[in-house]
Measured scan of single mutants.
Amino acid sequence: ATVHVKGVTYHFDNPEQAEKFAKRMAKELNGEVHVDGNTWHVD
């Protein structure tokens, strides 16, 4: 799974980790999470 945060890409072997990371980053950055298959975007 892949997480894109403000133009930076993070790779996770575990999709659950990717989801938790994306949601945590969105919270910290006051952003929104969008999911597209195995790819998470934090804007």
Rank of each mutant, 00 (worst) to 15 (best):
A1T: 08
A1D: 04
A1W: 15
A1Y: 15
A1P: 11
T2L: 10
T2Q: 10
T2N: 07
T2K: 12
V3I: 02
V3Y: 01
V3P: 00
V3N: 00
V3D: 00
H4K: 12
H4V: 15
H4L: 14
H4D: 05
H4P: 00
H4A: 06
H4G: 03
V5Y: 07
V5Q: 01
V5W: 05
V5E: 01
V5H: 04
V5P: 00
K6H: 12
K6D: 14
K6G: 14
K6L: 15
K6M: 15
K6E: 08
G7N: 07
G7M: 04
G7R: 04
G7H: 05
G7K: 04
G7P: 03
V8H: 10
V8K: 13
V8N: 08
V8D: 06
V8Y: 10
V8A: 08
T9D: 06
T9V: 15
T9L: 11
T9A: 11
T9M: 11
T9N: 06
T9W: 12
T9H: 06
Y10R: 03
Y10M: 03
Y10P: 00
Y10T: 03
Y10Q: 01
Y10C: 04
Y10G: 00
H11L: 09
H11R: 09
H11Y: 15
H11T: 09
H11M: 08
H11V: 09
H11W: 14
F12E: 00
F12S: 00
F12Y: 03
F12H: 01
F12G: 00
F12L: 02
D13M: 09
D13L: 09
N14G: 07
N14E: 09
N14C: 08
N14P: 01
P15S: 11
P15F: 11
P15V: 12
E16F: 10
E16G: 08
E16L: 11
Q17F: 07
Q17C: 14
Q17E: 15
A18M: 01
A18F: 01
A18L: 01
A18E: 00
A18K: 00
A18R: 01
A18G: 04
E19V: 05
E19W: 07
E19Y: 07
E19F: 06
E19S: 06
K20S: 12
K20R: 13
K20H: 10
F21H: 02
F21N: 01
F21D: 00
F21I: 02
F21K: 00
F21L: 02
F21Y: 06
F21S: 01
A22W: 02
A22Q: 01
A22E: 00
A22Y: 01
A22T: 02
A22M: 02
A22N: 00
A22L: 02
K23S: 07
K23R: 13
K23I: 13
K23T: 09
R24S: 09
R24E: 12
M25Q: 05
M25K: 07
M25R: 05
M25A: 06
M25F: 04
M25D: 00
A26T: 03
A26K: 03
A26H: 02
K27M: 13
K27P: 01
K27T: 09
K27W: 12
L29C: 08
L29S: 05
L29M: 09
L29Y: 06
L29K: 03
N30Q: 09
N30P: 05
N30A: 07
G31Y: 09
G31Q: 06
G31M: 15
G31F: 09
G31R: 05
G31N: 03
E32V: 15
E32R: 14
E32P: 04
E32F: 14
V33E: 03
V33K: 02
V33L: 12
V33D: 02
H34E: 05
H34Y: 13
V35N: 12
V35K: 15
V35D: 03
V35I: 08
V35T: 08
V35Y: 14
V35G: 09
V35M: 11
D36L: 12
D36T: 12
D36M: 12
D36G: 04
G37E: 05
G37A: 04
G37K: 05
G37C: 04
G37L: 04
N38C: 07
N38P: 05
T39R: 13
T39D: 10
T39K: 12
W40L: 05
W40A: 02
W40I: 06
H41K: 08
H41V: 15
H41P: 01
H41A: 05
H41E: 06
H41Q: 06
V42Q: 01
V42H: 01
V42R: 01
V42T: 02
D43F: 15
D43Y: 15
D43W: 15
D43I: 15
D43N: 13
